[in-house]
């Protein structure tokens, strides 16, 4: 048997290697496009490198100071060299001749903020756990709730439960986060002060408080996604339960539970894995609305700040990070698919 399976294994390895290589290329593409948007487009729009440098210097700078900054930050170099330095900074770190002394910016280096003149990455790194806490907690809730409701709705299609839950799901999909967030805050933080004084407490500091303070954001975010997932699961289940192989499973005399769980759910949930991976990747790049509404110091909030401040290095860092999470999530989903769907494994 091993001999027969043998020649197929390389196909899987090759598949995974291909995906990894593809992901690396994609990451490069993400940085390139980000770079182009923030450096090439302004230049095409007529902005000079001096104007760019002006962002780093205080008000009314002398032309000499401007020229020095321009030179030290490398704005005078051709674009491809600047891009190379940018990439180099991310992967290996780079040295800036900024201010009187040369300073080494450690990898991953996204440069210095226009405003605070501090390196961008440590600020972001500080915020990633917040976003991660929010996204992961919400994900657990929405997967459990969404899938459960979706499956039950599909099995009891047309019933009161189905119509009711799909009605709520429609609301969940349609209501914007800032609305549900404010409502939940108004109700559970002010009217009935169950969750008061919401502020982020790191998990390592106080797990109970961490969870308690995150309940509202989790539920609010999960409400939207649960609704989406309930609808997706329901549609997938309805389609799967109409498949011929479900009829075969019933004709074998399997119990209905086994038919639903082992034959129906397994097939219906597999495509959901893709969507889940992408959603999670997207959220890790910053749950902008939720973080802002609950003033969570996450990546999303940071991004909003960066945009209002027009702080280019920050914006670039957040964009690149978001792209990174999506590419990685995509890669994980692809590899997971090999485990889930034998047809991918053997073709």
């Amino acid at each position: 048997m091993a001999a027969r399976r043998g020649p197929r294994r390389p196909a899987v390895t090759a598949y995974i290697i291909r995906r990894v290589v593809g992901a690396v290329f994609l990451l490069f593409a993400v940085t390139a496009i980000t770079f182009a948007i923030f450096f090439l487009v302004p230049r095409l729009a007529g902005e000079t490198s001096t104007q760019l440098a002006a962002q780093y210097v205080g008000r009314d700078p002398s032309p000499e100071a401007l020229a020095a900054v321009e030179k030290n930050l490398g704005f005078d170099l051709p674009l491809y060299q600047q891009y190379w330095q940018f990439v180099q900074g991310i992967f290996a770190g780079r040295t800036f001749q900024y201010g009187p002394d040369p300073s080494y910016c450690q990898a991953p280096c996204f440069g210095y903020s226009f405003k605070t003149h501090l390196p961008v990455w440590p600020e972001i790194a500080e915020r990633i756990p917040v976003t991660l806490s929010l996204a992961a907690g919400a994900a657990v809730i929405w997967v459990v709730v969404g899938v459960a409701i979706g499956v039950l709705s599909a099995l009891k299609r047309g019933s009161l439960f189905d119509r009711l839950s799909m009605g709520v799901a429609l609301a969940g999909v349609s209501l914007p986060i800032f609305f549900t967030a404010l409502i939940s805050l108004a109700l559970f933080s002010y009217k009935w002060p169950i969750f008061e004084n919401l502020r982020y407490v790191p998990l390592t500091e106080d797990p109970v408080l961490w969870a308690k303070n995150l309940v509202l954001p989790w539920v609010t975010l999960a409400f939207l996604y649960s609704a989406l997932y309930a609808r997706l699961t329901r549609a997938g289940m309805l389609e799967t339960m109409g498949e011929d192989y479900i009829r075969t499973a019933r004709a074998k005399g399997l119990t209905e539970r086994r038919v639903v769980v082992r034959h129906g759910l397994r097939a219906a949930l597999t495509p959901l894995v893709t969507i889940f991976g992408l959603d999670l990747g997207l959220l890790l790049g910053g749950a902008v609305l939720t973080e802002t509404a609950f003033s969570l110091p996450g990546v999303g909030q940071y991004a909003v700040q960066a945009i209002t401040d027009n702080d280019l290095p920050k914006i670039m860092a957040v964009t690149t990070l978001g792209g990174f999470f999506i590419v990685v999530a995509n890669l994980i989903v692809d590899v997971l698919y090999v485990a889930l769907d034998p047809r991918v494994r053997y073709s």
Partner: peptide
């Protein structure tokens, strides 16, 4: 009774088997 006393073979063998389980597992299950 289904699968025990009365059994059925369907039209399209391409779609009547579950794509995610081995043929053996599906027969064993029956």
């Amino acid at each position: 009774l289904r699968g025990q006393k009365m059994a059925m073979v369907f039209q399209d063998p391409m779609s009547a088997l579950h794509p995610f389980y081995t043929v053996g597992a599906q027969i064993t299950e029956a």
